[in-house]
Design a protein around this nucleic acid. Structure first.
Lengths: 327, 327
DNA sequence: CTGTTAGCGCCTTCAT
DNA sequence: ATGAAGGCGCTAACAG
């Protein structure tokens, strides 16, 4: 059955308090007793109940990741990296997808997390503020330009803006001048978010050329239609796509339109996801350094706990442009 | 700050106990008071602390998913489905990847989950038994033939075995006779697991033809080499791959070998993941009904809580063969 | 150096 | 129909 501190205490022949002291290493404990405790802990496989710890306001070894697309492997790989970094320490990672309904924030606020990662581009500013307001260490994986929130929190700038500059430069080097921006699928089919770093980076590199934007499409058919339309109107010679998935979809669409990649058109995606390896031609893609994101985030969590003066701790990361066959 | 039951009680002008009674609906409470409580709850955005509930052994609204490959979108889509089913009820989904070290099981056992899903093919039988032994509702997403564990638990048979029969039949209809089985990547490069339903289904349909097996490869280069070798030896005319990813990798390898798909060789994957849409040719794939997996799992959780007589509750699901261009 | 004690927020008898 | 009180497992003063 469940093994509690009491069991350990009995097995080691000490009082329950001593067990706590040993495990939290916050009191000097007799060498001998200490060893007995450690031994008992190991033998019984004792792990302090996170629920009880949480109740006392202590670390719960619990990290929450708020995402907008659970299926995206982007989040999965970051979690995998973080897990690697804390393996053996008994951490638990949870996922919450914000599906527009703010009520999930109530839920979030009543758990105790050691860290909350906001990796969703669609979560409302108000909800972000509420989450930061709980006092739980929060870091924003910033894909967008955000206002300054109130309180202490972390900001990981993944480098998409500069990375996009690189993409654009690469495209230029290949002689591309009429570069279009392709947004992600979105059930609502709304216009591209101009505060996203990808788009900002894109528009900063237009060098006088007019912007060509394919707003969020509802599905493959819609994309196909809009792409054809845009080609008719603008004769674009390159596509910078918000994600690899969109780049892959675009590849299909272009193929259907009889356009050759990279012969006629260059295509670039973002994320270096598995998909990018298997398309034909293989995708050139802007890779976020996921391992860096993971370690930076973890460090920010402890940083936030130390300084709580209301400042925002920022980490700026680099990206890597992975050139494959599609440019 | 954090809003507790006490705040609600004060706001509604009742005692804390009444608040509990209203929320748990396990006592008759005066209509009027009840409404005041509900109103206060809504206004304050009160959510009972899961930590405190867990400590009392109540539902924690917390579900754990144990996986072997976090990056795989398979698990992500099942979680997404489950989330849809319980949206608004304040559920939290957590991920644990078993990385061979059993110590994570100690951790798992000391949390309180309302449900634990075992979706890992590599977790040890011993660990599974320990998890079931905690008494927390456990369901196994069964990709393999498993022994009978001790205790009450759920088993979701995703239908891979019959599904594989369909795949083989489809391949036969296309005139394929020398069908090879391609295992997943695996750092250890070990031989294919013959207790997996995919392999079982495969070997049941050999009809006298000898089996052709590509054991787990360490990476793309390894796969390429083994595939070439196997082709030399057996002149296979079809590949049934453990996952879409392996099918995609195989496509690349075959292309490098100068073999045409589906002209010379047919290729089939499993999972209907996004990848399958973007390869060239597009992948024929065996789709697991993820939405059914999600709902069956949730139902099993409540089933397990009701009957606790030591039986195993089983659900048998169907699959769908999605025929695209690669066969 | 170690044990005793008072909660953390909640649920559940037990009284009323 | 409702309130008081004990305790889930743990931590952190507070006394020895």
């Amino acid at each position: 059955m469940r093994v509690t501190r009491r069991d350990v205490a009995r097995a080691a022949g000490v009082s329950e308090t001593v067990v706590s002291y040993v495990l939290n290493a916050n009191r000097y404990v007799d060498k001998d007793k200490k060893e007995r405790v450690l031994k008992a802990v190991k033998e019984l496989g004792y792990v302090p109940s996170p629920a009880a710890r949480a109740l006392k306001g202590k670390d719960a070894h619990h990290i929450l990741f708020i995402v907008d697309d659970i299926v995206s492997e982007y989040f999965g790989s970051i979690i995998a990296e973080m897990e690697r970094l804390v393996v053996g320490k008994g951490f638990l990672f949870s996922l919450a997808s914000d599906r527009g309904d703010s009520s999930f924030v109530d839920t979030v606020c009543n758990w105790s997390f050691d860290g909350i990662i906001i990796g969703s581009a669609t979560i409302s500013l108000n909800d972000i503020q509420r989450i930061i307001g709980t006092g739980m260490p929060t870091v924003i994986l910033s894909m967008n330009e955000y206002p300054r929130f109130h309180g202490t929190y972390g900001l990981v700038l993944t480098g998409l803006r500069n990375g996009t500059h690189e993409v654009m430069a690469c495209l230029r080097r290949r002689g591309r001048r009429r570069i279009a921006f392709v947004d992600s699928f979105n059930a609502a089919g709304r216009p591209v978010d101009r505060s996203g770093y990808r788009f900002i980076g894109y528009s900063e590199c237009l060098e006088g050329a007019g912007e060509i934007v394919i707003d969020a499409c509802v599905g493959s058919a819609d994309l196909r239609r809009k792409l054809a339309q845009a080609y008719e109107a603008s004769r674009f010679d390159a596509l910078f796509c918000r994600t690899d998935r969109m780049a892959a979809e675009s590849l299909l669409a272009l193929d259907a339109m009889g356009l050759r990649v990279p012969g006629d058109i260059s295509v670039v995606g973002v994320n270096n996801s598995r998909i990018a390896m298997y398309t034909k031609p293989r995708l050139t893609t802007l890779a976020i350094r996921k391992a860096d994101v993971a370690s930076a985030t973890l460090e920010l969590f402890s940083g936030i706990k130390r300084y709580a003066g209301g400042e925002v701790l920022t980490v700026q990361l680099e990206t890597d442009l992975i050139e494959r066959e599609s440019v």
